[in-house]
């Protein structure tokens, strides 16, 4: 009888150890999935998946970046709930990653320097020129990145507007296998392996896209996307916004960094050039709808309302695109 009890006790103990081991293994797997961005039960994620386009948006979208990148994520989540996926998109339970700290510098655009997958040195100055540069922070192992690597194999089909420079940045050779990156990269694609760049741009995870206005020398958009077509469309909008701002605006208060009375005067000139004179009703909005019309397509023909076009108002443009 005693022997039977002892044997049963040993069996129970063994089973306990086995169950504990399985639970530990399960926890490790869940943790790894979370780190890969495909976590289950993310409290901020949308279990239904759907499009989660980041705000690679117009030039004014950086107002949000300047204050808090947390707003980027909140806005994106809101959009995730309010938009439908593109017909050809595959829902991916990809989370946005950790909340970005509010003190994060989301406008600086330092030169990206590192090595190429073949071991050469490469530095790309994204500031100080007249073009927009789209920086794609990718990794060779992330599942979501695979679609982007594949899309980059045929650069002519990317749908990027003319004059946009595309640069892919992976982490450095100490954290990535150069051979794998080289195998994924198209020969004409500029790929820089630089862990420092990930730090400089405070990249929260991959994939992550940054759009830099070379003339202004700063980031004008950043975020994530599931498909490159989404990025290309937002880049196109940003390019139009940038051109509209630089060409259509007689005032360069924002681009020129004017402040104080000079900025006020410049803004007044810009408003008057657009036909908005002192006392114009549009200067005294009574509700948010007056500023951001809920339906751009149904804007009245009244010229005083038509002045708020999607191009001048990136937020409204994004809303209409949703």
């Amino acid at each position: 009888m005693v022997a039977l009890v002892i044997i049963l006790t040993v069996v129970v103990l063994l089973l306990t150890v086995l169950v504990a081991g399985l639970l530990r293994s399960h926890a490790d797997i869940l943790k790894a999935l979370h780190e890969l961005g495909v976590g289950v039960g993310d409290p901020v994620g949308d279990p239904a998946g759907g499009s989660n386009i980041g705000p690679v948006g117009g030039p004014n979208s950086d107002h949000h970046h300047d204050h808090s990148d947390g707003q980027i994520h909140r806005r994106t989540r809101e959009r995730r709930h309010s938009t439908k996926s593109a017909p050809n998109s595959t829902p991916v339970p990809f989370t946005m990653g950790p909340q970005l700290p509010g003190e994060r510098n989301a406008t600086s655009a330092p030169t990206i320097a590192g090595v190429t997958p073949s071991g050469d040195a490469l530095a790309i100055a994204v500031s100080g020129n007249d073009q927009l540069t789209l920086v794609a922070f990718l990794s060779s192992g992330c599942a979501t990145c695979a679609g982007f690597w594949e899309a980059f194999q045929t650069p002519e089909h990317l749908g990027l507007p003319d004059g946009i420079r595309l640069v892919v940045v992976t982490k450095g050779p100490e954290m990535e296998i150069a051979g794998e990156v080289q195998a994924k990269a198209h020969s004409h694609l500029q790929v820089v392996m630089s862990t420092d760049a990930w730090g400089d741009y405070e990249v929260p995870g991959s994939p992550f896209f940054v759009l830099v206005d070379g003339k202004a020398g700063r980031r004008i958009g950043e975020g994530v996307a599931n498909h490159f077509s989404q990025v290309a469309e937002l880049v196109r909008r940003a390019q139009v916004d940038t051109q509209a701002f630089s060409l259509g605006s007689r005032s360069r208060a924002f681009a020129g960094g004017l402040d104080g009375p000079e900025r006020e005067s410049a803004n007044d000139q810009e408003l008057m050039a657009a036909g908005i004179l002192p006392g114009d009703p549009s200067l005294y909005p009574a509700s948010l709808d007056d500023i951001f019309p809920s339906n751009i397509d149904n804007l009245p023909a009244d010229p005083s309302r038509a002045r708020t076009t999607p191009l001048q108002d990136p937020q409204a443009a994004q809303r209409s695109a949703g």
Binding site: T111, A113, T116, S118, A121, L122, A123, A125, G128
Partner: peptide, 10 residues
């Protein structure tokens, strides 16, 4: 690299 310069060594 001085400011505004980019480059490559290959």
């Amino acid at each position: 690299l001085p400011d505004a310069f980019e480059g490559r060594i290959f």
